[in-house]
Amino acid sequence: MAPHTEQLTRPAVQLRGLTRSFEGRTVLDGIDLDLPAGQLTALLGHSGSGKSTLLRAIAGLDHGVTGSGQLSAPERVSVVFQDSRLLPWRRVLANVLLGLDGKDAERRGREALEEVGLKGRERAWPGELSGGEAQRAALARSLVREPELLLADEPFGALDALTRIRMHGLLRELWERHRPSVLLVTHDVDEAIVLADRVLVLDQGRIGLDLTIDRAHPRSYRDPLLGEYRERLLAALGVTEDHR
């Protein structure tokens, strides 16, 4: 483990003039961005605004996409997808351990499952889990690798509202314990405000708004002071009073 101070001096992710295009359509248009180490950042945007493209670029998953620019990211990167993406033919613990080897891998896997509240479900098949449980297992799978950077692509988008609120608490708790840098892609303004220390709005391939949310945690969804942030973010997303 690198000492905390060293982590804080250097940004975890550095983008310079990052450009990506699909079939002549520019999706990311020269993005400059630093994500400080250990920060929880949310990335908002309409569907099709390029937020997933940005996340996939940082994750190194954009094979065959044309683009230019500079990008630096840490060595250990984990990704949580919108679907839990558990392999249906592996039991939950085996899914968490996917790609991990070493003597104490199994112990770490069990610990990670315990952390996300799935102790006792190690031998369950993914098909037996509820949507929330499956997403917890996916979180455990990404945490067990002790990532320096956690990329989450609308991780709670497919969950029901109640489960989503519970997962928000879990994510925040896990982040506070492990302190990875997190980039959370979402289209849910409230989710971004409640969870993140910094919210970026992606608009037409550029960072349209970069907002630091300077409020103590845990935050309440009903905190009136958060309403101001909500207004600014909605305005940046092009949602005004007449639209609502």
Binding site: A59, G60, L61, V77, S78, V79, F81, D83, R85, L87, W89, R90, L98, G99, L100, R141, R145
Partner: peptide, 24 residues
Amino acid sequence: RFVELAEVQDLSKVQFIRQVVIPG
């Protein structure tokens, strides 16, 4: 989606074939 997952989890080609492709 499973191919993408295998890439994210840094599986080697052999691990990918044995743990993802063949069981699938």
